[in-house]
């Protein structure tokens, strides 16, 4: 019977902190995963999640149903970028130009599958070397299994942008993983 009791539509301003626990906290792993991949550091990721959850709690009254995971991930993402702005020491501003990062026009390459170094270490390094806009897209897609539409609403981009960023992210990963040593030096990004 207690199961049934949960199903009645929650009075919006009622049960704020009670339902926060049930609605938002189940997505803690997703929040941390995104924060960890954006921040590339355990401590920073925890700070981001901590701050994001506080914001989520503060804005919880304005959350009117919908997908709590998408809602929370958007907050995590915004929190990460706003915290990063506050720390100028970190301040390599990646002004991301979608045009600039267009994939190189490839020569008609060998018609064979490329040999990719797909061990966890290489993958992790390659992912961490991606610029933030590409990294968040690919992490949301492959690790969180978000749809394009969900990624678009988390990142505030158009679906077309999401699609081309994912394409670029994968092209770069593929390049980097097929010749790791050269690419690693070339893309030694912040």
């Amino acid at each position: 019977m207690p199961n049934k009791l949960h199903r009645h539509p929650p009075n919006p301003q009622a049960s704020a902190s009670a339902s926060f626990e049930g609605v938002v906290l189940p997505h803690l792993d997703a929040a941390y995963n995104l924060a960890r991949w954006l921040a590339r550091d355990d401590t920073d990721a925890q700070d981001v999640v901590q701050e994001a959850l506080l914001r989520a709690l503060r804005y919880y009254a304005s959350f009117h149903g919908g997908d709590a995971r998408v809602w929370l991930l958007a907050i995590v993402r915004n929190t990460f970028y706003s915290l990063r702005m506050k720390v100028p020491a970190d301040g390599v501003h990646e002004a991301f130009d979608d045009e600039m990062h267009a994939p190189p026009d490839e020569q008609p390459g060998p018609e064979a599958q490329t040999l990719l170094a797909l061990d966890v270490g290489s993958l992790q390094r390659a992912l961490e070397n991606l610029p933030h806009p590409l990294r968040e897209a690919i992490v949301l897609r492959e690790l969180e299994e978000c749809s394009y539409k969900e990624i678009a609403s988390i990142t505030g981009q158009k679906i077309g942008t999401v699609m081309s960023r994912l394409a670029r992210a994968r092209e770069r990963l593929r390049l980097e993983l097929s010749c790791p040593s050269k690419e690693a030096r070339q893309h030694d990004v912040p």
């Binding site: 803690l28 792993d29 990721a45 599958q113 966890v120 992912l127």
Partner: peptide, 28 residues
């Protein structure tokens, strides 16, 4: 087709779970 196979391979490697970062117990 070769490109597609590359990306499919990449996706499979990424989704195997070892890249997923779970929230530390302390935080939870």
């Amino acid at each position: 087709t070769a490109h597609y196979a590359d990306f499919a391979q990449l996706r499979q490697a990424m989704t195997q779970g070892s890249l997923y970062r779970r929230a530390p117990d302390a935080l939870r």
